[in-house]
């Protein structure tokens, strides 16, 4: 191999490695964020309650914010905007989805926790955010969120804000997921609200 060929081979190896690295950044980024909790993402599946004593010396304010999304004529409301909880205690909060549109559709609420460090100590036992929701035109239904802030929540965190953003779920995503998840979606208990938006 001549010198030029050797140099070119080596640069091509680096090139390929960097291209792979760019894609490897995606799982690395997720793993890094999960370990450090720095992007405010929370677990996407139900977690078990930690049966621990309740730290009654501290009161944490948990605020809820909901946001709609372009392309989905739905509304997501929280029925208790703010709760005060002790670390270790499990708390239930109710949310209501309303489809103001003229068609049935699928949507999903994606959570984010602020300050992001708090996401490591936020455990969700039940959440409507674990899966896509289907609402008929004009349908309204209430869904619970049961969460727990663990006792090791750092002392400097006194307020935790949970933001839920509604996103439309497009057909491609549904097609991929619906078959696999159908059973699970149907299993979500629907609480019919009499006199709800018609």
């Amino acid at each position: 191999m001549t010198g030029v060929q050797r140099t070119v081979t080596r640069t091509l190896v680096v090139l390929l490695a960097m291209f792979v690295f760019a894609f490897a950044l995606v799982p690395l980024y997720d793993a890094f964020c999960r370990v450090t909790g720095i992007n405010g993402k929370v677990e996407n599946t139900a977690q078990a309650l930690i049966r621990d004593s309740i730290d009654e010396s501290r009161v944490i304010t948990v605020q809820f914010i909901t946001r709609g999304s372009a392309g989905l004529p739905w509304k997501l409301e929280v029925l208790n905007r703010q709760v005060r909880v002790h670390p270790g205690a499990a708390t239930e909060v109710h949310f209501a989805f309303t489809n103001h549109g003229k068609e049935a559709g699928w949507g999903r609420a994606v959570p984010s926790v602020s300050p992001s460090e708090a996401s490591l100590y936020m455990r969700k036992v039940t959440c409507f955010c674990f899966q896509e929701q289907r609402l008929d035109a004009g349908e309204r239904y209430e869904a619970p969120l049961v969460f727990q802030l663990t006792r090791d929540l750092p002392d400097d965190i006194q307020t935790v804000t949970l933001v839920y953003t509604l996103y439309p779920v497009d057909d491609k995503t549904l097609a991929a997921k619906a078959l696999a998840n159908e059973a699970r979606i149907i299993a979500v208990p629907r609480i019919a609200v009499p006199g709800g938006e018609a």
């Binding site: 390929l16 960097m18 291209f19 690295f21 760019a22 894609f23 995503t173």
Partner: peptide
């Protein structure tokens, strides 16, 4: 250039996949 242009290629490929391939 050798180190970062592939990263640019990667990120625009991800955009392409997000836009066209769900």
């Amino acid at each position: 250039l050798i180190a970062v242009m592939p990263v640019l290629a990667g990120v625009i490929t991800m955009m392409l996949l997000d836009i066209n391939f769900g």
